[in-house]
């Protein structure tokens, strides 16, 4: 069977989000749906070496992320699982090439996070972001506890989610990745939680 690339056909991607019912104008926090931006994941004992051989920096510890090249975020979710996420919608070619090159890699299994997960980017006042998350998540994401680059693999509004804090051009943001089928639900839950911060 042919190996096909799930990072392909970027223009044919559609987010599962329908924004008809949601009024976002009042909140001090901005939630951006980045689901159609490119990302890919790799798992396996060869994943770390594979990414390094492709010139990507690797977080040294699990549950750490780092920012590389204008919004390209590399997440280390376990000893042998890595996701490369484009939060700026600028790195499609790199990610597509990375996925293709994994075809020949030994002990590297690609993960379909492009399609399995929805992706939200949350910006705005840092304290308000923490307060908003405290309404939907039982992990302490406050400044002193959840440093830049930390990852929480947790439950957000009772949905499995990956949360990391990163920055781009000096602007700190929170990246939220969760089951793509829950995109609409989670968006509404976040909007509801953020609605008091006007």
């Amino acid at each position: 069977m042919d190996f096909y690339n799930l990072s392909s056909a970027k223009s044919s991607r559609s987010s599962l989000l329908s924004l008809n019912k949601v009024d976002r104008s009042h909140s001090k926090l901005e939630v951006q749906d980045c689901t159609v931006y490119s990302r890919v994941g790799f798992r396996g004992v060869g994943a770390e070496a594979f990414l390094e051989s492709n010139g990507l920096p690797i977080p040294k510890l699990p549950n750490q992320s780092l920012s590389y090249k204008n919004g390209l975020i590399i997440l280390r979710l376990s000893k042998s699982e890595f996701w490369v996420v484009d939060t700026a919608n600028k790195h499609h070619a790199l990610i597509e090439a990375l996925e293709l090159s994994s075809k020949e890699a030994i002990n590297v299994y690609r993960l379909y996070c492009q399609h399995s997960h929805g992706c939200f980017l949350i910006t705005g006042d840092a304290d308000l972001t923490v307060k908003m998350f405290s309404k939907v998540c039982s992990v302490d994401l406050s400044q002193g506890v959840f440093a830049l680059g930390s990852i929480a693999q947790t439950s957000v509004a009772r949905t499995n989610a990956i949360v990391t804090k990163q920055s781009m051009d000096g602007v700190v943001f929170t990246l939220l990745l969760a089951d793509v089928a829950s995109t609409q639900y989670l968006w509404e839950a976040i909007e509801d939680a953020a609605s008091e911060f006007v």
Partner: peptide, 13 residues
């Protein structure tokens, strides 16, 4: 504000 997650397929709309 109890959370009741639901999932939608891409063809829901």
């Amino acid at each position: 504000r109890i959370f009741n997650p639901y999932k939608l397929t891409p063809m829901h709309q």
